[in-house]
Design a protein around this nucleic acid. Structure first.
Lengths: 94, 94
DNA sequence: GTAAATAAGTTTAGAATATAAACCAAATTA
DNA sequence: TAATTTGGTTTATATTCTAAACTTATTTAC
């Protein structure tokens, strides 16, 4: 009847991050922060969780002399996101 | 960009309860329990929350001699559910 | 040159939430 | 009449979220 919802994705901020990364292919920490309106601390924690699950890849590079954290969705993450949407439908469709 | 998700609805079990009530008009506690697979304790707590928010109505009646808890969605609840779906779309559509 | 402000995050402690175990009362069955 | 089942509620713990506090490095202002 109701399919279980991946708890990692069933979180407002993590879902927003994944949603962003699906459409942008690659995004920098400050950009994600701005788009989601999250605090840096919260975003840092949630990015860690997505990364630990293998849903996103985090690359720490430099942009000139300043550090730059780049995030990218992985195939695993994309699959999980699609399955999450599919599961959600079991709650939304009559 | 991303619309906020009503925290009361952004919960697997509460969302399942609301989803059920939308399609069934009225449902008994044991039926909801069976359909959602929730434990009675968890279900009781979540029903209380939905009820406290005015999203559902809970009527305690009797079925013969046994107590019978009936749940029904309210217009407020229906509106909240629709708005939740609308907000969700901002995360799912590219 | 150095003091203050900004950038880019991370750590972590407290608040909020979820969940199941323990409990209760009444009715049924053995 | 003792044990079991039904129909829940309470509550204690575990989990999760979130923002405040902190770190390190870089500009900018004096």
């Amino acid at each position: 009847m109701f399919k279980p919802l991946d708890p990692l994705l069933h979180s407002e901020l993590r879902l927003a991050v994944m949603s962003l990364l699906i459409s942008t292919e690659e995004a920098e920490f400050p950009y994600i922060k701005e788009q989601t309106g999250a605090t840096a601390g919260n975003l840092s924690v949630q990015i860690d969780k997505l990364s630990a699950a293998g849903y996103i890849e985090v690359e720490k590079t430099f942009k000139g002399k300043r550090p730059c954290t780049l995030c990218r969705i992985t195939p695993t993450g994309l699959k999980a996101f699609e399955e999450y949407i599919d599961a959600l439908k079991s709650y939304l469709e009559k």
